[in-house]
């Protein structure tokens, strides 16, 4: 539920170092809260993003949610598989359901984020 190889935002995104880039997605708690996700609107490759700003939107059968960038930088890859298979966000949020890869604008962005234990405590409070 809270893998410790990723860092977390209070808005329920995760970020994981991936070579020179940072791969990002939404947490298991986020996908459970949304329910079955049917559309993923993702940023275009090359877009500059700012930590905390919306970079896309996920829509489920009954609701929707913005996705916020965990770190600042440039989008260098997006998970095109989500277009045909948005259900990957539900079934494998930390793996095949990743959303995008960001080339960080500066080093150390991940250090600002929550670790697994801090995030777990946040979720327990929200429940």
């Amino acid at each position: 539920m809270y893998p410790d190889d990723v860092k977390y935002t209070p808005q329920h995104e995760w970020a994981r170092p991936h070579g020179e880039t940072v791969r990002i997605g939404i947490t298991a708690y986020a996908q459970e809260a949304l329910g079955d996700i049917v559309y993923a609107s993702l940023p275009a490759v090359g877009t500059d993003v700012t930590a905390g700003a919306s970079i896309g939107e996920l829509e489920s059968t009954k609701t929707w949610s913005d996705v916020y960038a965990p770190v600042s930088g440039r989008i260098v890859a997006v998970n095109d598989a989500l277009d045909a298979q948005p259900e990957l966000l539900n079934s494998d949020p930390y793996g095949d359901g990743w959303i995008a890869e960001v080339e960080p604008a500066e080093a150390g962005g991940l250090d600002q984020l929550l670790d697994a234990e801090q995030y777990r405590q946040l979720v327990e409070t929200e429940r």
Binding site: T27, K62, V67
Partner: peptide, 10 residues
């Protein structure tokens, strides 16, 4: 992520 509800849900 920030979940939002439609007005009917609110």
């Amino acid at each position: 992520m920030q979940c939002r509800l439609s007005p009917a849900e609110v």
